[in-house]
Computed example of a mutant assay.
Amino acid sequence: MKRLPYCIILLSGFLLFLAACTEEQDFSQVDDLQVTPTLASGLFYFESDEATINSEGALSVFYSQEVNFDAFNEQYVAERLIEGVITYEIDNTTSKELRLIIEFLDDAGRPLDAEIFTIEANSPETVVRDVPYGPGGKPIDILANTSSLRVSAINLSDGTSVSSADDPKIILRSGAQFVFRLK
C-alpha cells in the first residue's frame, strides 16, 4: 500500500514532464513560404559569314527571321513572372558596320519592344548588353505578352570589302534568366 502513493506521484510527475516539454505545433508556417526559382535558358543564336553579307549587297537586310517564343503563353506562368534579364553577346570580325534588331512581338505580330545594336566593323571586343525586365527595368508585361521574336540584320556598309581576319563572321548569342513566384 505504501507504494501506491509513490506510484501516483511518479506517474503525475511523468505526465507533468510530458506536458511541460511539448508545444502545440504550428503548421501555418507553410502559408508564409515564398518560393521564387530562377530559370536560365538560351534564347537564340545567329551567325553569318562575310560572303553571305556581301552577296546581299550594300545597305541591305541580309538576315531576317521570326522565332516562336511560347515561354509565357500559359497564363499561370505569365502571371507568376516577377523579373527577368536578357543578355546579348555580339562578335563582329567582318569588315562591315552592321545593325541588329531584335523585336518582341505579341500574338498579332505587333511589336511590343525592340533592342537595336549598331556594331562597328572589325569590332575588337565582344559587345555585351544585359536588359532587365521587372523592378528597375523595362515593364515585365513585355516578356509576359511576347509570343515571337523577330531578328533582323542589316549591312550598313558596302557589299564588296573583305576582312583580313580568318573566317570573318557576325555572331549573336542571347540567353535569359527569369524569376517566378510559385505561390
Rank of each mutant, 00 (worst) to 15 (best):
V179E: 12
I86S: 04
N122W: 01
P5E: 09
Q65Y: 01
L81G: 14
L98M: 07
E125G: 08
S28Y: 04
D70C: 04
S48M: 08
V162H: 01
E47L: 12
L43P: 01
I154A: 01
L10S: 15
Q75P: 08
Y45V: 12
A108K: 01
L143K: 04
S152A: 09
E56I: 03
R80N: 13
E66W: 02
E97M: 08
L105H: 01
I171A: 09
C21Y: 02
N54L: 10
F44S: 07
I102H: 01
V77D: 05
I90W: 00
I53P: 03
I170A: 07
F180T: 10
Q29T: 12
P37Y: 06
G13W: 00
N68Y: 10
A114L: 02
I9F: 11
G84P: 08
I8Q: 03
L172A: 07
I8L: 15
R173G: 10
K183W: 07
K2E: 15
D107C: 07
F27D: 11
N92G: 11
D130T: 04
A71Q: 09
G134K: 07
E89Y: 01
Q177W: 00
Y133M: 11
L33P: 05
Y6F: 13
Q65S: 14
Q177R: 12
T126F: 03
E23C: 15
D107T: 07
L143T: 05
E83K: 14
F72N: 07
A144D: 07
Y45R: 13
F104W: 05
I53K: 04
F17S: 15
A20D: 04
T160M: 08
K183C: 14
F17W: 10
M1A: 15
D158Y: 03
A19Y: 05
D107W: 01
T36F: 08
A19F: 10
E23N: 14
L100R: 00
G159E: 02
G136H: 03
A58F: 01
A58G: 11
V85N: 11
T36H: 08
D107K: 12
L156H: 01
R150Q: 07
S64M: 10
N155F: 03
D106F: 06
D113L: 03
F46G: 09
E23Y: 13
Y133D: 09
Y45D: 13
I86L: 12
T93D: 02
P139L: 09
E66H: 03
I101H: 00
F17Q: 09
D141E: 15
I102Y: 00
D166E: 07
L18Q: 11
P124K: 04
I8C: 12
A58Y: 00
I154K: 00
S48V: 04
L100C: 06
T52K: 09
G134W: 02
S64R: 09
P132E: 06
P139C: 09
I90P: 02
R110N: 12
V85T: 13
F104V: 06
I101T: 11
L4W: 01
I171W: 00
T118Q: 10
K2T: 12
G175K: 05
S95G: 14
E97L: 03
V131L: 11
E56S: 12
S157E: 06
L98W: 00
K96M: 04
I90H: 01
G159V: 02
G42L: 11
D32S: 15
L149H: 00
F44D: 03
R181C: 14
D107G: 13
D31H: 14
E66D: 14
